[in-house]
Every structure is written in C-alpha cells, then in structure tokens.
Simulated scan of single mutants.
Amino acid sequence: MVIPVHDVNPVRRTPWVTYALILANIVVFLRMPVAATSVTGDSSLAQLCHLQAFLEHWGAVPDELINNRPPRLVPTGHAAVGPNGAAGCLIGQPGYTKSPPLSVLTAMFLHGSWLHLLGNMLFLWIFGNNIEDRLGHVRHLLFYLASGYVAAYVFALAHPDSSDPLIGASGAIAGVLGAYLVLYPRVKVWVLVPFLFFIPLRLPAWVVLGLWFVLQAFYSAGYGVSAAGTVAYVAHVAGFVFGVLMALPLRANTVPPPDPRQAAVRRY
C-alpha cells in the first residue's frame, strides 16, 4: 500500500469547503470520548461504555437504516457488575430521539482513533481541493455528502442485520477519490512506499487511486482480512464507484476554471 503525500495539481480557487470539512472533522473528534484514550490506548470499562453509548447515539447503524426505525434499547453509558461478578455496559431505553437518515450525516464526522482521523483527512487534503476547484464550493459539498450517504446505505444493504455503528468520513472521501481518478488520471502524485523504510516515488493518479480501489474491493470480498475486521470496505467501494459515475459527465462537459497565471499573461 502506498501513502500519498502531495499531488502536482495546482488549484485555481481557494478550497474553502475542503478546509471547513477537515476542520469540522478535527473539532468533532476532539469532543469525542475516544480522543484522549486513543492516544494512550488505555481505557476503563466506564470509558468504553460511555464511548459505546456515544457511537450508538450519533453513528449510523445498518439495521436502523434498512428498517428506518430508531433503536429501542441502547447502551446507557454506564458500567455495571452483575451478581456473578461479570462486568458490562448497562442497556436501557434511549433518552433521545434518533433519526436514522440524519445519523448518516453525523456519522461522517466521527472517527474511532487519531489514526483513523488523520488518514482520512490526509486523503481529503490532497485530493479534495482539486475536486472542489472543478465543481465549485456548493456542488463539491453536495457531492461529498451524497457520496457519504450512498456509501452508508450500500453498506447497510450488504449488512442489513448489523447493529454495529458505522462511523467515519471514508465513504464520502472515497467518492472524492473516484471523481479525481476520472478527472485527473494522469496527474502525478508523490507517494511513500513502505519497503524497509519509506521510499518517495512520483506516480500517476490512476496508479495510486486504482491500486487503492483494487485493495478495497479485494478486502470487501473477504480476502486478506479477517471476518471480524472493523473497516467498512464495502462502503469505500460504493463511495468510489459513485464518485466515478458522477464525474464521468463532468470529464466531457465541464470546462475547468481559467488558470489565473494564463490570464495574467494575456493582460500583458
């Protein structure tokens, strides 16, 4: 797996939406119960129960999405010890009203660890600015959110009985990657290849993103990962395919914004 660090693809307008999305993801993560414990890796049962209740409240649960109904019993966020000495999290009726469709939106801004967050934000930072440059601010935001919704609901259709909360911006960002592959396949991307140490290489985007997609599809089919894996590879694949399909008409019909450097030359 290669790690992208920079693309040689300048933008013609400031990607305010991409910046805002990155900032929002970071701010939300800092307010999550997992922010402090993910650094040390140490957490008590009470902290785990609090996190479980938080994710159940704000995450997108496939069973709820498919049936379009809120949960009847959820973790309360409190730990308890049973008569036999077994410890666990208390379950009870939710003290809040949850909308399954709206939970997809809130889940896009939740992450399970610093590594999860920083990995997603790196991809959004590198590739999101050019998609926003091509689409414009409003259309980029709508496209990003639509990719996240498609990814979440496709994952729910593939796992309709799952009660595990789905969180993360990966599905939405996968849509950005799919669009980038269609619109800028030949753009060079600097990557780090882990081989004994990190080797810097400059590869075309179609190689970097094509390899990423192949790996996600491979993993989503159950190859190379355990059945108990916690990464929603199906959502990645769905978001990427959606991005490709949405970008295909743009490749032929949308003219990129004028390059300000060229405009300056014409004025002289």
Results as ranks from 00 to 15, higher is better:
residue 3 I to L: 12
residue 3 I to H: 08
residue 5 V to I: 13
residue 5 V to R: 03
residue 6 H to F: 12
residue 9 N to K: 06
residue 9 N to E: 09
residue 11 V to C: 04
residue 12 R to D: 13
residue 13 R to L: 07
residue 17 V to T: 01
residue 18 T to S: 15
residue 19 Y to T: 11
residue 20 A to S: 11
residue 31 R to S: 05
residue 32 M to C: 05
residue 34 V to P: 07
residue 38 S to A: 09
residue 40 T to M: 14
residue 41 G to M: 10
residue 49 C to W: 00
residue 50 H to R: 09
residue 52 Q to A: 00
residue 54 F to S: 09
residue 57 H to A: 10
residue 59 G to A: 04
residue 62 P to N: 07
residue 62 P to F: 02
residue 68 N to I: 13
residue 70 P to E: 04
residue 71 P to N: 05
residue 71 P to S: 07
residue 72 R to L: 06
residue 73 L to E: 07
residue 75 P to N: 09
residue 78 H to W: 06
residue 78 H to S: 09
residue 79 A to Q: 15
residue 80 A to W: 15
residue 83 P to L: 14
residue 84 N to H: 09
residue 85 G to N: 07
residue 85 G to W: 06
residue 88 G to H: 07
residue 88 G to Y: 06
residue 92 G to F: 10
residue 92 G to A: 11
residue 93 Q to M: 14
residue 96 Y to S: 14
residue 96 Y to F: 15
residue 101 P to M: 13
residue 102 L to P: 08
residue 110 L to M: 13
residue 111 H to G: 04
residue 114 W to H: 15
residue 116 H to I: 07
residue 117 L to E: 02
residue 117 L to S: 06
residue 117 L to V: 05
residue 119 G to S: 13
residue 120 N to I: 01
residue 126 I to D: 00
residue 127 F to G: 02
residue 127 F to P: 03
residue 129 N to M: 06
residue 130 N to K: 14
residue 132 E to P: 00
residue 132 E to H: 07
residue 135 L to M: 03
residue 137 H to P: 01
residue 137 H to Y: 08
residue 139 R to C: 06
residue 139 R to V: 04
residue 144 Y to R: 15
residue 145 L to P: 09
residue 145 L to A: 15
residue 148 G to V: 04
residue 148 G to T: 00
residue 151 A to P: 03
residue 153 Y to H: 11
residue 156 A to I: 03
residue 163 S to M: 13
residue 163 S to A: 12
residue 165 P to H: 12
residue 171 G to S: 04
residue 175 G to E: 00
residue 178 G to A: 08
residue 179 A to S: 15
residue 181 L to E: 10
residue 183 L to S: 04
residue 184 Y to F: 15
residue 189 V to P: 06
residue 191 V to K: 02
residue 195 F to P: 04
residue 195 F to E: 10
residue 195 F to H: 10
residue 196 L to R: 14
residue 197 F to E: 10
residue 198 F to N: 14
residue 198 F to T: 06
residue 199 I to W: 14
residue 200 P to V: 11
residue 201 L to V: 07
residue 202 R to L: 14
residue 202 R to W: 09
residue 203 L to H: 11
residue 203 L to W: 13
residue 206 W to Q: 03
residue 206 W to C: 09
residue 209 L to F: 11
residue 213 F to A: 07
residue 216 Q to A: 05
residue 217 A to W: 02
residue 217 A to H: 01
residue 218 F to Y: 07
residue 219 Y to Q: 02
residue 224 G to F: 05
residue 227 A to D: 12
residue 234 V to S: 10
residue 235 A to F: 03
residue 235 A to R: 02
residue 238 A to V: 04
residue 240 F to Q: 02
residue 243 G to K: 09
residue 247 A to D: 02
residue 249 P to W: 07
residue 252 A to Y: 14
residue 252 A to R: 15
residue 255 V to G: 01
residue 256 P to W: 00
residue 257 P to W: 09
residue 261 R to C: 12
residue 262 Q to F: 09
residue 263 A to S: 04
residue 265 V to Y: 11
residue 267 R to V: 10
